[in-house]
Computed example of a mutant assay.
Amino acid sequence: MTSELSSPSLDLGRLTPYLEQHLAGFRGPARATKFPGGQSNPTWLIEAPSGSYVLRRQPPGQLLKSAHAVDREFRVLSALADTPVPVARVWHLCEDRDVLGSLFYLMSYEDGRIFWNPALSEVDRDARRDYYSAIVTTLAALHDVDPERVGLSDYGRPGNYFQRQIELWTKQYRAAETERIAPMEALIEWLPAHCPADTQRPTLVHGDFRIDNLIFDHDAPRVRAILDWELSTLGNPLADLAYFCMCLRLPSKGHITGLRGQDRAALGIPEEEEMIAQYCKLRGLPGIANWNFYLAFSFFRLASIAQGVKARALQGNASNANAHEVGSMVEPLATLAAELIA
């Protein structure tokens, strides 16, 4: 690399000298390649003579309050560095918006495989069950972390997690609302009225635990790193489990690919009951009541996130070219949730 290559929305002319001054061992010149996918915080691979890094920043433009909190991501990744939970190593957080126009941080580049389709067509059929088992094992390990021991006892607010989340995502949805969607209105009414008592001990919750937010080893069903911690907090761990299990009900075609209508037995993908049983065994739980509530909430939250992407796309601030496609998912996602509460 002999010269700096520009990248959209990333000023390497300002970034490189900043990193040379603030990140031990960093040496330019540097080049940046934006990762595909991702709707929230734009992410780049930074390559320099001193090594490869990943830069994650807030998007430009006006942001919803509490959204795109890359500083929270940096904090939770730092806290998990010496736990059994697989995460990238974080190197530096920049809170000086004059450098790139918004907050950003650098972390290690974890070389591995990311699967965008939960059908796992890239691996042998007989290995797919092992990959899903690794996913559930990783999720259980995350929820077994003691927040107080890793310095995250104040990472979330007290009280019923789902009540707070319903209020938050209803508020976020209203702030980004562009039209009236009947299934979303039904969910906004039904969810708070059917919220179960929060009997689970609060754990660290990832908030966006799905297969494309995991990096696997190249040659083994082993999770190397969990990505995208923007929505992490303290709360009810069943939120993560239900959110991951949405992939079994999402359509097989679309921006977020699922397994709806596919023969999972023929694919070698375990059924939902098997994954729930594995999770409960790992965490010593007798079982899970009110499962449809947790699923319906998961669809509602994803629909609210998609509405935020749609609003940013209409404002011209979305970080991904497929933002309009994501925005079109709001009503279908709400409809899938409505099926669970009918």
Rank of each mutant, 00 (worst) to 15 (best):
A277R: 05
A277G: 07
Q278M: 11
Q278Y: 00
Q278K: 08
Q278L: 15
Q278P: 04
Y279C: 10
Y279P: 14
Y279W: 09
Y279D: 09
K281T: 11
K281M: 04
L282S: 02
L282C: 04
L282H: 10
R283K: 15
R283C: 03
R283F: 04
R283P: 04
R283A: 05
G284H: 04
G284C: 05
G284D: 11
G284Y: 07
G284Q: 03
L285A: 01
P286Q: 12
G287R: 01
G287D: 04
G287N: 01
G287Y: 05
G287V: 09
I288V: 14
I288K: 04
I288N: 09
I288E: 07
I288M: 11
A289R: 13
A289C: 04
A289Q: 14
N290G: 00
N290S: 09
W291C: 05
W291Q: 03
W291V: 07
W291P: 13
N292Q: 13
N292A: 02
N292C: 02
N292Y: 04
F293D: 01
F293K: 00
Y294T: 07
Y294A: 00
Y294H: 12
L295N: 01
L295E: 05
A296H: 07
A296V: 06
A296T: 06
A296K: 01
A296R: 03
F297A: 00
F297T: 03
S298P: 09
S298T: 10
S298M: 06
S298C: 05
F299A: 04
F300V: 02
F300W: 11
R301Y: 10
R301I: 01
L302E: 13
L302Q: 06
A303P: 06
A303I: 09
S304V: 02
S304A: 15
I305E: 11
I305H: 03
A306M: 11
A306F: 15
A306P: 02
Q307C: 12
Q307D: 12
Q307A: 14
Q307Y: 08
V309E: 12
V309Q: 10
V309W: 12
K310I: 03
K310G: 14
K310A: 15
K310M: 14
K310H: 15
K310W: 14
K310T: 05
A311R: 08
A311D: 06
A311T: 08
A311Y: 12
A311Q: 12
R312N: 12
A313M: 09
A313R: 11
A313N: 11
L314R: 13
L314W: 05
Q315R: 15
Q315A: 15
Q315L: 13
Q315H: 10
Q315V: 03
Q315G: 09
G316F: 02
G316T: 13
G316S: 12
G316N: 10
N317K: 01
N317C: 05
A318R: 04
A318Y: 06
A318M: 10
A318T: 11
